[in-house]
Each structure stands twice: as structure tokens, then as C-alpha cells.
Design a binder for these strands. Structure first.
Lengths: 239, 239
DNA sequence: GGCCAGGCTTTGTGATCACATTTTTACGGC
DNA sequence: GCCGTAAAAATGTGATCACAAAGCCTGGCC
């Protein structure tokens, strides 16, 4: 039973192997590459990465530390199965931190950046219209994090990333689900940009908070949480 | 130059060495045992802990991952020197997350817990009156985290802990500083408890937010930030 | 006296090994 | 056929070693 680790390459070639492993796993996690509940063993990841077990071990421990992975008492780490409560907790935190990031970014963002972000929104709409959910999700990340980066708050950025990391596995095999989201839940990015152009950071923040809350409500209903611990409907079994 | 690592012992005896190392370092960090800017080398920490470098290495990497420690490009980790901007960033995040924890706790906390917490507040007041700043800080933590734990939100709790971890080194050699805090900045714990007894979670949250903001304003003035990167006034040099 | 070059020390990284524990697998009994 | 037990495979942990890079100190040169 070999797993297909289609972990995207990171550009940095001269970084420590451990750091590369960490980033690749991280990226794979937000993209929902791993199935929730999947066990990630040190030696297996190491083999998939083509290194000795050491870098894999460190990377997995780091991920477990930021709760992007669950750790069994035995030390084995696995992709978390988000419970409904955990999903709502992540959402509640996002609804506080991400608007904060917007407020901080509001006073620093320049018109040029806003133009670039408007282009990303257009690309997302196009992806949605073209029925390409994974591209749609990617553009969504690109837009929001493009904004968050402008907040000039590295710790806040790291914490938001950690939240997305935790939420990532939810989209495993269920990336399609964003396509069904109601128009009033998405499509608020334009409103955020408009508010920022007016210099109304508070309004932009509120706009985002509303978006997060609506998306949370939608996903809470759309995702299948099995019993107390679980997951979206997989489209197919893993090979 | 040997450092005196008065790292407090953790009860758990049968935990992995790495976990023990992690917890001890973490505890030392929130308590402000380490001087900001102090370099923490793997081998030195390992020696102080009485283990091989391996557990120390993992623990330090984990701490660096949650930004409780800074990592130089060379890989060396050191206790962060909080800039004024970083301090205010931590405070801004706290002002969002900790009130959220209070709101969540409000609907779950029982009268018995509130009574126990009232006792802690009394102990803190006594410590303040007795001129024991470190005990005062300890009771402060005990009160707030006792409340946060009742929120039933493990991720949120972990993130708040991470924030305190980052703020810890600020109090190195400056624990006395809490003694000078103005009455209107502290002493709000009683008001928080009162609001919770009334079932007014929102009020309690607002009360805490105000406390954090006032304390931040006070500390921003009271702490000496050297240039762009730095610290409180140390009371004495390290031996 | 200040500055730079040299070598020495210390540091982090990564591999390999040994060991105890957990988890899986297979077999035998009920 | 099902379940419990024992053997076997796999797993995490921690120690030790080798190596390269970074840091540091010293000595010599301008």
C-alpha cells in the first residue's frame, strides 16, 4: 500500500531538508491532499520525500505542535478528523483574527496592491464559472493572504496560516463543495476591496467577518460530520 | 560561562524526553527565566537537561515553530527580543482571542468554578499587597487560564498560550513592573467574575478586552524598548 | 591603534543504529 | 465462523557519529 505523495516542490533548494519537508507537508495539508484520519509515519514520509527519517521526523513533530496534525499517545501522528465543534471553533477564531488582519492592512495597503488583488478576484470568478473548484480555492487563498500579508503582522499571519492548516483536510475529496456555496456567502471579496479603496478598514473587516460566518454556516450544513469525529463525503476511495 | 537553567520540573516521569524538554522550556519561557536575546544552543540545553542533544533539538525546533523562539538563518535559536511593534501585535491578538474565550466560557462555567476563581483573585490581591510580583503574575495566569480552560476550545487555548509564551521574555528581570500598574488597569478580574455570575458573557468579554488594552498601554510606556529591537530594564546582569 | 586574515571552536544538520513499544498479522482453539 | 493469543513487522524514541557551515578569537599587517 504505497501512498502517492503528490507533494508540491518548494523552490528553495538550499534550505535544510527538514524545512523543505515541513513546507511541503504544510502545503499538502492546506490543499487537502491527505485524507483525514490518514496515518503519517516517519519512515513512510521520509521515503516519499527521498530523505532519511530524520527530517521527516522533525517536520511531523513541528506540524503536530501547531496542531496541524493529531498525535496519538504512542507518538504516531495522523491527519486530524475535524469534529463539527472543532470546525466551528476554527471558524470562530478565524472570524476574530482575519478581520483584525484586514483592519491592520487597511492603513498600509496601496492602490497598486488593490488592483492586483482585484485581478485575483476576477480570476477566482472565472475559475468558478469554469467549474474548477481547486483553482477557485487557490485564488481564494491568494486573495485573502495577499491582503493579510499587507498587515505587517508576522505573528498574526502565522496564526491565520495555522488555522487554514487545520481546516485543510476538510476539503479532501470535497473541493467540489465550494461550487455549491450560495452567492451571498462568497463573492464578498469585491465588497472588501471597495471598502478598502474608500479607506474604510472597519467596514472591510466587517465584510470579511460576515463572509466567514456565512461560509461557516454553509459548510456546517454541507459537510458530513460522521458521529462525533469526522469528515466530508469522499468522492472516491484512496488507491 | 555556564548558564543556570532553573527549569521547573514537570510531574510526568514517563513522558518522552523530548516532551519533557519541550514543557520545561515552555514553562521557563512564560516565567521569563530566559533573557531576551539569549542564545539557546542544542548541546547546552541538552546538558542542562541531562539528556542527549536529540530531545533538546526537537524541543527547540518546536518552540521556534510556534514563534516562541526566534530562529537565525544559521539555525541557531534565541529568545526573542520583542520590539514595540511586536509587543503591540501580540496585545492586539490577545485583545481579540481572550475575550472570545471568555464568551465561550460564559455559557459553560459553573458557580463552583467562579467561586474558586474568586479565591485566586483574592490571592492575587494579597500577593500584590505583599509586594510579591512573581506570585502576582502567577495568580494572574492562574485566574485567566482557569477561565480559558472552561471555554472548551482546545485550539483557542493553545493559541492563547502561544501568545503568552511570546510575551514571557518581556518580564525577564522586570517582574517588579506589574507592581506599578495603575489600579484601573488591573483589578478588573472582579468585574469579570461579577459579569459572569450575571450570565453576561459579552460584558465580561468587554471587561477583559479593556483590561488588556489598558495594560498594554501601560506596559508600552513602562517597558524600555531599545531602538527597534528590545527589552525591559534588567534589574541585574546575568551570572 | 584599527583592520583583516587565519585557524580553532562551536553549532546545526542529517544519517545510522539500537531498543522498547505498539500495531498488525496469522494461527489455533472454542 | 469468531475471538483471543502469540509471533512478526513496523513504529517512535533517543544516542552517537560525521560533516559542513558559522562564529570567535588571536595574531599579524597596514
Amino acid at each position: 500500500m504505497t501512498i502517492t505523495l503528490s507533494i508540491p516542490d518548494t523552490d528553495a533548494e538550499n534550505l535544510p531538508l527538514e524545512e523543505q519537508a515541513y513546507r511541503r507537508l504544510r502545503q499538502a495539508l492546506v490543499e487537502g491532499v491527505f485524507a483525514p484520519g490518514e496515518k503519517l509515519s516517519i519512515r513512510r514520509i521520509a521515503e516519499a520525500l527521498g530523505t532519511s527519517p530524520m527530517p521527516a521526523r522533525t517536520a511531523l513533530r513541528r506540524l503536530a505542535t501547531e496542531q496541524a496534525l493529531d498525535a496519538l499517545p504512542s507518538g504516531t501522528v495522523l491527519v486530524p478528523r475535524l469534529t463539527r465543534a472543532a470546525f466551528q471553533e476554527v471558524s470562530a477564531i478565524r472570524a476574530e483574527l482575519e478581520p483584525l488582519a484586514i483592519r491592520l492592512a487597511a492603513s498600509r495597503v496601496e492602490a497598486g496592491t488593490l488592483d492586483a488583488l482585484a485581478a485575483v478576484v476576477a480570476e477566482q470568478d472565472a475559475a468558478r464559472a469554469a467549474g474548477r473548484p481547486e483553482l477557485c480555492l487557490q485564488k481564494d487563498r491568494e486573495f485573502l493572504f495577499g491582503l493579510y500579508r499587507r498587515a505587517g503582522a508576522p505573528m498574526l499571519l502565522g496564526m491565520i496560516e495555522a488555522l487554514w492548516l487545520r481546516r485543510g483536510p476538510l476539503f479532501w475529496g470535497a473541493r467540489w463543495i465550494v461550487m455549491g456555496s450560495p452567492p451571498e456567502a462568497a463573492h464578498r471579496h469585491g465588497a472588501i476591496l471597495a471598502a478598502l479603496r474608500r479607506g474604510a478598514g472597519e467596514e472591510a473587516a466587517l465584510e470579511l467577518k460576515t463572509e466567514i460566518e456565512r461560509m461557516t454556516a454553509f459548510l456546517s450544513g454541507a459537510l458530513q460530520f460522521q458521529g462525533d469525529a469526522a469528515i466530508p463525503r469522499p468522492t472516491r476511495a484512496r488507491g
